[in-house]
Design a protein around this nucleic acid. Structure first.
Length: 575
DNA sequence: GCCGTTTTCGGCCCGACTGTTTTCAGTCG
C-alpha cells in the first residue's frame, strides 16, 4: 500500500488540515504541510530512518520526527487521533471543494452541523445558508459549481494513484505459485487521465489461489465479490480492483478484451464477424464449429483480423482501426525516445531538491540533456531575483558535462501576464538556453483576451514552450477559455512548442487537444514539471498522454538530438 | 512547528482576487 513516505505525507497533511480547520496557528499548519511535501518527495524510505535521519529532511524538526517515529512504530499518532475525534472526516472533505477553505468549513460545521459534501449541497438547495456570515449568493454558486466539478470526476481516481495500486497488486500476484502471466488492463493500460476501477488479469491453470491472494492482501479493505472467474475488492484507499484469471492459452484474447476500450472492441468484434469469426475474452473462434484460431497473444489476435498490434493508448476508436487496416498506424513516441526533460524545478524556487540532486537523478535516467527551469520573479511568492537565477546559471554551467556527459540547459518558467507579457526583457531572456512560459494567474479573462495573451506569448522570440497550456487541474479546475485553434496555429507559425505536462493531476495538454493541435503542425515537449526527484518518473504519464494524442517521436522536440533541439530553441534567431 | 549571516525568539512565500463587506476575511497560486 504505497510507500511509507506517502502514508506519512498523507498523515501529516491531514494533521495540517485539521489544525487549519480547528483554527490553529496557520504557521504551524504550514509547517506540517511543508514537512508532508518534503517527506513525500524524499528519495529515502522514511521507515528506514531513525530520528536523526528524519531530522535531516528539510522542514522536519524534533516534534515532527517524533510523530513520524510514533506512526511508524504504532500505526497511529495520538495527537492526530485526538483531532480526528474532534472533527468528523466529512468536514475535512469540505475543504477539497475549490473556493472553500478551512475557515468556511468550520463555520459550516459549527453553525449548521454540516459534515459532508452532500449535506452541504442539500443545505444550499434548502436555503439553509441564508444569513450565515460570509456566505452570500455568489459564494453558494461557487460552492455548488465546485461540488459539480468534483462529482464530474465521478469518483474516478488519478492515473498515478491507480498505477501505484495496480503495480503493487501485479507484483504480489506474480509471486503466487502457478502464475504464468499477470498484468493490468483496462483504462489504466490505455493511460486514460482518470481511472474508474483497476482491471488485473492473471494467466494460470487454477484461479483459486489468486482470488484468495487478492482478498487477503493488506491493501484490501473490502471484498465485493469472490468467485471462480472474477473477484472484486476495494482497497483501503477506496479503489475498486477486478481480478480475472484466464487459461494461459487465452492470455492474448483476454488482455485484448479487458484492455478495451469498449468502442475499440466493438470494432474488432465487428471485423471478426465479417470474417466469419467470433471474438471473446477467450479467443478468436470460427463462428460455425467454434474452432479456435487465435488467442495466445494480442499480436496473434490482431494479425488474424488483418490488423497490426495496436498500442493500448490508441484503442479508443478514434481512427486507429482504419489506420491499422491501411498500414498507416503511427509509430507513437515511447519513454525510450525521450532524450531529456525540458521543464523542471529545484529548491531555488518551489522544488524540493537542490540542483545537484535533480541533475544527478536526471543523469541516472540516462538523459542526453536536461533543462532546469525555475520560476521567474512575477510569481511573487517564489521571490526570484536576477542575482539568484544568474548564480544558479553559474552552478549549472559548472556541473555541465560532469554527469555521464549529459548536457545541462539553463532555462526558466516565465509567467504569461494578462497581456501576454513575460517577466524579463529580451536582453535578459537572451541569456537562457530555453524559456517555458505558463499562465499562473488571471484565469478568467474573456476568450478573446485570453487568446491574444497566449498568441502574444508565442510571438515572443524567447518563449520556446507554453507550459501546461490550459492550466486545468483534473477534477478541481477547468482549463482556461481560449480560441485554441488560433493558439495552436500561432504555435506552429512561431516555432513554439506546446507542453504535454506529465504531472498526473494536469496532463496538460490532454489527449483531445493534442490531436487538435497536431493537425496544425505544432511541435510538443513532454515534460515532467518535476518539483522533486521522484517526479522525474512521471514522464511515463506524459508519454502515455502523448501516445493517446497520436504523437510520434518526430512531433516531440525533446526526443530530438541536441543540435536539432537547439535549432528549434533559437526560433530562427542566429545563434 | 521549523529555522537561523542564529543561540533564543521572531519571522515564516507575498500579492491578488473575490465576495461580502463598507474596510476586510478567506482563498488561491
Amino acid at each position: 500500500m504505497g510507500r511509507p513516505n506517502e502514508e506519512v505525507e498523507a498523515l501529516l497533511q491531514e494533521y495540517a488540515d485539521l489544525i487549519a480547520i480547528t483554527g490553529g496557528d496557520a504557521f504551524k499548519a504550514r509547517a506540517y504541510e511543508k514537512a508532508a511535501r518534503a517527506i513525500g518527495g524524499y528519495p529515502a524510505d522514511v521507515s528506514h530512518l531513525d530520528i536523526k535521519g528524519l531530522r535531516e529532511i528539510p522542514g522536519v524538526g524534533k516534534s515532527i520526527a517524533d510523530k513520524v517515529t510514533e506512526y511508524l512504530r504504532t500505526g497511529t499518532v495520538t495527537v492526530v487521533e485526538e483531532r480526528r475525534a474532534a472533527i468528523p472526516a466529512g468536514v475535512r472533505e469540505l475543504i477539497t471543494i475549490p473556493t472553500l477553505g478551512p475557515k468556511k468549513a468550520l463555520t459550516l460545521y459549527e453553525d449548521l452541523h454540516i459534515s459532508s459534501v452532500n449535506e452541504l449541497a442539500d443545505a444550499i438547495q434548502a436555503g439553509e445558508l441564508e444569513g450565515l456570515k460570509g456566505f452570500g449568493r455568489k459564494t453558494e454558486e461557487n460552492i455548488l459549481h465546485g461540488i459539480a466539478l468534483m462529482q464530474r470526476a465521478g469518483g474516478r481516481i488519478l492515473l498515478h494513484i491507480a498505477m501505484d495500486s495496480a503495480e503493487d497488486i501485479v507484483a504480489e500476484l506474480s509471486r503466487v505459485t502457478g502464475c504464468r502471466r499477470c498484468a493490468y488492463a483496462g483504462s489504466l493500460r490505455r493511460m486514460k487521465e482518470t481511472i474508474g476501477d483497476i482491471d488485473v488479469l492473471v494467466a494460470a491453470d487454477r484461479s483459486r489461489p489468486f482470488m484468495d491472494a487478492l482478498s487477503e492482501l493488506p491493501s484490501t479493505g473490502e471484498v465485493i465479490a469472490h468467485g471462480e472467474k472474477k473477484t472484486s475488492i476495494r482497497t483501503v484507499k477506496g479503489v475498486q480492483v477486478d481480478l480475472r484469471v484466464l487459461p494461459p492459452g487465452s492470455w492474448g484474447a483476454g488482455l485484448q478484451y479487458f484492455t478495451g476500450s469498449k468502442a475499440h472492441n466493438i470494432r474488432t468484434r465487428t471485423i471478426a464477424i465479417r470474417q466469419g469469426l467470433k471474438l471473446s475474452e477467450y479467443g478468436l473462434f470460427e463462428a460455425d464449429g467454434g474452432k479456435a484460431v487465435a488467442s495466445r497473444t494480442e499480436e496473434e489476435v490482431y494479425a488474424r483480423l488483418g490488423l497490426p498490434w495496436i498500442p493500448p493508448a490508441l484503442r479508443e476508436d478514434r481512427g486507429e482501426i482504419e489506420a491499422g487496416l491501411r498500414g498507416e498506424l503511427p509509430e507513437v513516441v515511447t519513454e525510450r525516445d525521450v532524450r531529456g526533460d525540458l521543464h523542471t524545478h529545484t529548491d531555488l524556487t518551489d522544488g524540493l531538491a537542490p540542483l545537484e540532486e535533480m541533475v544527478a537523478a536526471a543523469a541516472g535516467r540516462g538523459y542526453a540533456y536536461y533543462a532546469v527551469t525555475d520560476h521567474a520573479p512575477n510569481l511573487y511568492m517564489q521571490r526570484m531575483t536576477d542575482e539568484k537565477i544568474l548564480a544558479q546559471r553559474e552552478r549549472l554551467r559548472a556541473l555541465d558535462g560532469t554527469r555521464h556527459r549529459m548536457r545541462l540547459l539553463h532555462g526558466t518558467e516565465l509567467n504569461i501576464g494578462p497581456d501576454g507579457e513575460v517577466d524579463w526583457p529580451d536582453d535578459f531572456l537572451e541569456g537562457f538556453d530555453l524559456c517555458v512560459a505558463s499562465v499562473h494567474s488571471h484565469f478568467h479573462l474573456g476568450r478573446e483576451a485570453m487568446t491574444r495573451r497566449l498568441v502574444r506569448a508565442c510571438e515572443n522570440p524567447h518563449v520556446n514552450v507554453i507550459g501546461h497550456p490550459t492550466t486545468r487541474i483534473i477534477g478541481k479546475r477547468p482549463g482556461i477559455d481560449a480560441d485554441w485553434d488560433e493558439v495552436f496555429a500561432a504555435c506552429a507559425r512561431t516555432g513554439t512548442a506546446l507542453e504535454v505536462n506529465a504531472q498526473p493531476d494536469r496532463l496538460d495538454l490532454g489527449d483531445e487537444d493534442i490531436l487538435r493541435a497536431r493537425r496544425h503542425g505544432v511541435k510538443f515537449a513532454v515534460d515532467t514539471d518535476a518539483h522533486s526527484v521522484l517526479h522525474l518518473a512521471y514522464l511515463r504519464y506524459g508519454v502515455g498522454t502523448a501516445q493517446r494524442g497520436w504523437l510520434t517521436a518526430d512531433d516531440v522536440v525533446n526526443t530530438w538530438p541536441l543540435p536539432r533541439l537547439r535549432r528549434f530553441l533559437s526560433k530562427g534567431r542566429s545563434s
